[in-house]
Design a protein around this nucleic acid. Structure first.
Length: 487
RNA sequence: GCCUCAAUAGCUCAGCUGGUUAGAGCGGCGGACUGUUAAUCCGUAGGUCCAAGGUUCAAGUCCUUGUUGAGGCGCCA
């Protein structure tokens, strides 16, 4: 059995004079004497002092030569107070053992700043860097906090299917799932691919959302949430989109749009607080990373607040809440618009452009913003129709809501669902969706339906916001994007 | 999908209006160094200039197409 002490435990409660064994990867080896060791248990490195005998004794010299960047070592010795300035304690090693040699002449990474693009191409090694170990520790923390939040409030974790037979979810292009031979699929007499011969006896896809199935559960056990992978075959080339991402979708019976907004705000703040309270070292490191990176930028291109300062600001202040109609009025009466600074004119009936959302969040309210009650014409079929004239809107609206964040834009999209059977049927027909695809969804409204609401939170976008990473591909271990499925 | 930009050593980049043998820093390798914090100092090796065509006496440099990457937009979470 392997016995070792984790670095985080040593640093949390150092027992001077104790005999300990540590194992980890060398982050730096300086002066042929000082190893900065990290075992992943925390953001801070631990200094191991290599005794002189490893250089002087010919029997030990081969070990000495293998101590290098990202080599894996085991060190045993006595924990002492450090004489150097950078750390309070260190290991005065007695024996050093190489667990995994690193062939530095061909190893791609270097102990220096490297570009995110390069590290992405080396995703099998990038987690060994300070930045990525912090990012992925925080990713874990957010995932844990999601389950804790809902469990503590009586929600049930619901597993929605990853393979779906419904293509009426309406959230985007889908990836097909098939076992048919793509070069020679079975055909019907008229020449079309015969999906009846496919594995499931019908055409199937990877899910784009667990919402519809979430509604089934909410209308039986009340408060549920899903948290799983989601797939969109959109050719989206941005720093905020992935083809495979994780989504959290709470769905709650006896909830209206107001309940929904309150839940969304409280939930998101809980996640941020959890990380602030439990991962200060990782946040500190990421905060510093951004400050260093921004040193070369002009003042007006830098973030107005540091990362930690911004996270605190978000949890300590109420989110701004406006109706879509108000939002359009605000945009149209802004000096920004009057001076012609918007590329797209804000008009009632068109979706808000990214520049409009940024204006509301960064200039007008300077905090997260929840926009509600969007035009019916631009939103999904399942959203509940509002009474005519709600918020003074010129046309019909639906009880939809988007939560907009600085830097990353839309982090949550949700709605109160249309629970009135006849309206839902009418809407489905209006949008040309085949009714038989949604037979079960419609039956929920005929047999003991209830008012209910829910939303989807983009997990990676949340992690992106909390870590301050500029590209969503750097907060998921193995990003799936157009033209890229390496690792 | 659209627009813009980029691709030169392991990495980050320089390489002028086309002109001899392709440049630096970092990293690697070899050496020095008894308290370093991106350690420092000396030495050294390292190149299919993304690919395929084309223009030209001559292409890393110009043109075309493709591939990949980045930023922005759209789609959304």
């Amino acid at each position: 059995m392997i016995l070792r002490t984790e670095i985080a435990d040593i640093l949390r409660d150092p027992e001077i004079g104790a005999e300990i064994t540590v194992m980890g990867w060398v982050r730096a080896f300086r002066s042929n004497r000082f190893i900065a060791l990290n075992d992943g248990s925390g953001a801070q490195n631990f200094q191991v002092v290599v005794p002189d005998k490893y250089q002087e004794d010919p029997a030990l010299e081969p070990v000495f030569r293998k101590i290098g960047f990202h080599a894996c070592i085991k060190a045993t010795g006595k924990l002492v107070e450090s004489q150097g300035a950078g750390q309070t304690v260190e290991l005065q090693a007695d024996t050093i053992e190489i667990l995994g040699e690193n062939k530095l002449d061909v190893y791609p990474l270097q102990p220096k700043k490297q570009t995110m693009e390069f590290l992405r191409e080396n995703a099998h090694f990038r987690m060994r860097t300070a930045t990525f170990s912090s990012v992925f520790r925080i990713r874990h923390a957010v995932a844990y906090a999601i389950h804790k939040y809902y469990n503590d409030r009586g929600f049930y974790y619901m597993h929605s299917p990853i393979i779906t037979g419904s293509d009426a979810e309406g959230a985007g292009e889908m990836f097909r799932v098939t076992t048919l031979d793509v070069n020679n699929p079975p055909r019907t007499p008229d020449g079309a691919v015969n999906w009846k011969e496919d594995f499931f006896g019908k055409s199937t896809n990877l899910t784009v959302s667990g919402q519809l199935q979430g509604e089934i559960a909410a209308l039986a056990i009340g408060k549920v949430y899903t948290f799983g992978p989601t797939f969109r075959a959109e050719n989206s080339n941005t720093s905020r989109h992935l083809a495979e991402f994780w989504m959290i979708e709470p769905e709650v019976a006896f909830f209206d749009i107001e309940n929904n907004m309150n839940l969304a705000e409280d939930f998101v703040k809980f996640l941020i607080n959890h990380v602030l309270d439990n991962y200060p070292d990782d946040l500190q490191l990421l905060d510093q990373r951004i400050k260093d990176e921004e040193k070369s930028l002009p003042q007006d291109k830098r973030r107005p607040m540091g990362l930690i300062e911004m996270l605190r600001f978000v949890v300590e202040n109420d989110f701004a809440r406006v109706s879509y109609t108000e939002a359009v009025n605000i945009l149209r009466s802004s000096n920004h618009f009057k001076k012609g600074k918007f590329e797209f004119e804000p008009v009632w009936g068109s979706d808000l452009q990214a520049e409009h959302e940024r204006f509301l969040v960064e200039k007008e309210f300077k905090r997260p913003v929840i926009v509600r009650n969007y035009p019916k014409s631009i939103k999904a079929f399942y959203m509940r129709e509002n009474e005519p004239g709600t918020d003074g809107a010129p046309e019909l609206t639906v009880a939809a809501m988007d939560v907009l964040f600085p830097y990353i834009g839309e982090v949550i999209g949700g709605s109160q669902r249309e629970e009135r059977h006849e309206r839902l049927v009418a809407r489905i027909h209006e949008m040309g969706i085949p009714e038989e695809e949604l037979w079960w969804y419609l039956q929920l409204r005929q047999f003991g339906g209830a008012p209910h609401a829910g939303f989807g939170l983009g997990f990676e976008r949340m992690v992106q916001f909390i870590t301050g990473m500029g590209n969503i591909r750097d907060v998921i271990p193995f990003p799936r994007t157009p033209k890229n499925a390496e690792f």
